[in-house]
Amino acid sequence: MFASCADPKALEGISWLVCYLTTGKHLLFFVSFGTVLLLLAVTAPIALALGFGGAMATRSGFAPLRWLGRIYTAMTRGVPDIVFFLFVPIALDQGLEYLRHRIKCPDWTEPVRKGSDFVVCPAAKLPLSSAPEWEHQVYAFALAVVAFAIVFGAFAANVIHGAMNAVPKAQLETADAYGMSPRQTFRRILVPQMWVYALPGLTNLWMILIKATPLLFVLGIEDIVYWARELGGSKTTGASAYPHGDWRVYYFLVLLCFYLGMTRLSELVFARLYRRLSHGQATLAGEQLRKATT
C-alpha cells in the first residue's frame, strides 16, 4: 500500500509490521469486520420485526394464525441453532430456484431431483452462472441474513410474548374501562409498557446474536474467521512476500478481543437504555428513578 513497502525483504521491525498489516488481503480482513457489523445491523431489526409478528400471532384470535405463531416460537427450542443455520440457506436456495424453474422453464420435462442431484434449468439458477462474483457473495450473505433472522426472530417472539403477558392486567382493564378498542389498547397501552419487560430478554438475545456471528464462517462466507485462518497460517518465502510462522493463534486472539469489546460495549449501552425505559414505569426501577428526582 505504501511506497516504502515495495521491497518487503529489506524491511525490519515496525516498518515490516506496518507494511505486513496493510497488504491487500489484510485490508479485506479489516473489511470483513464490517461484514459482521453489517450482519448485526441488518439482522437485528428483521429478527425483532419477525419476533413481534410471531408474538402477535400467538395472541391472535384466529386459531390457525395462533398455531402458526406457536409452532414458530417453539421451533428453536430443543434444536441447536446451527442446524437451522445449515438448513435454512440450502432449503431457501433450492426453494427459490425451484420456483424460478417452474416459472421460467415450463417445458422442462426432466425431474428436478435426479438421484442425488438437484438440477434446474440454467435460466433458473440463482444467481445466474454468468453473474459477477459480487452477486454470488451478496446472495450468500442475504441467505445468511435470512437464516439468522428466522432463528433469532423465533427467540425474540418468545421474549416479546412473555413481555406482553407481563404487563399488569390492571393496566389493560383500565384501558378497557375507558372505552378503548382492543386495537387501541394494544397500541397505546400494551406495546409502550411491554418494552421494559422485554428488554432484559432482548439484551440477552443481542448478546447471543453477537456470539453467533462467527457461524457465518460455517455458511461459507468470507468473514473474520475465514481471514484469520487464511492470513494466520504459516507462509513460506516462496508463497508470500511476508513469510511468517503459524500465527493463527494471535489472529484468533484479536477476534476474541473484538468480541469481548463488543459484548462489553453492548452491556454498557443496554444498561443506559434500561434506565431510560424505566422512566415513569410501574416497576421497582421506575419507582427508584422517581424517588431519586424528587
Partner: peptide, 15 residues
C-alpha cells in the same frame, strides 16, 4: 461468557 464458543474452539485448537 463474553466471547463466542466458536472462537474459543479455534483459539484453543491453534494453541
Amino acid at each position: 461468557r463474553g466471547s463466542p464458543l466458536f472462537i474459543q474452539f479455534f483459539m484453543f485448537y491453534e494453541t
